[in-house]
Design a protein around this nucleic acid. Structure first.
Lengths: 118, 118
DNA sequence: CAGTATCCCACTTGATACTG
DNA sequence: CAGTATCAAGTGGGATACTG
């Protein structure tokens, strides 16, 4: 879910938020960045199933949208750190609620599944 | 963003939530359903830019995920009402926070735009 | 009124290989 | 270590027309 153009008119601002956090891996990335600064490799280990390429792409979009900060250290081997910007940190309460709701949703799925089985 | 299979293992439950509300029009649909029960036509007017086909598809997925209830009245002409299930209403705080955050995000975009112009 | 049915394309995502 | 480059594939979404 790449963000739409600047002249795009959101009919509803919920839409705008989903533009920022609704990408395939963005929620998970942001969630892990809440813990603190992470290096590229750390994120790749944390965000399971996400390819290197997708991780790069999604991080770039999050950076463009102003919620993630990318810091490059001029070292060899290269070191790049990702963290939430201050604006990005304002997403924290939303992410936490999404985690809690997701937990309940998954439990419900498991329940349904066991009912079908029995 | 159609929900993944039951045997899918979410590495993070934020992902599960986004599976449910992260579709192209789902956030907006849910947001309008928070106000109360709506008929199909009402929703189509409210969710601007969404085609009839997409509205149907997204509503069916929301129904399958247990957050929206579809009630058909045996009348001519047909009458179908959509509302949040009790479980769906548990998304309300998230949707409200997403609306507020989206507002701030959009304001920021407008600011940036005006800076570039001047 | 509240949908289906087709057709089709763009964009997102993935797999794999390569590099400063 | 932290990426690009390239190619291929899947699918989400749009346009349009039709219907119980």
């Amino acid at each position: 879910m790449q963000s739409r153009q600047y002249d795009y008119r959101y009919s509803c601002s919920v839409e705008a938020t989903l533009d920022v956090i609704g990408g395939r891996w963005k929620g998970v990335i942001l969630f892990h960045l809440m813990e603190g600064t992470k290096r590229f490799n750390e994120l790749q280990r944390l965000v399971q199933g996400c390819t290197q390429r997708m991780l790069t792409l999604q991080l770039r979009e999050l950076e463009k949208d102003g919620v993630v900060k990318r810091t490059v250290y001029a070292e060899v081997p290269p070191k790049v750190e990702y963290s939430l910007t201050e604006f990005g940190r304002s997403l924290e309460p939303i992410l936490l609620m999404m985690r809690d709701w997701g937990d309940r949703y998954v439990s419900q799925l498991v329940e349904q599944k066991s009912k079908v089985k029995s």
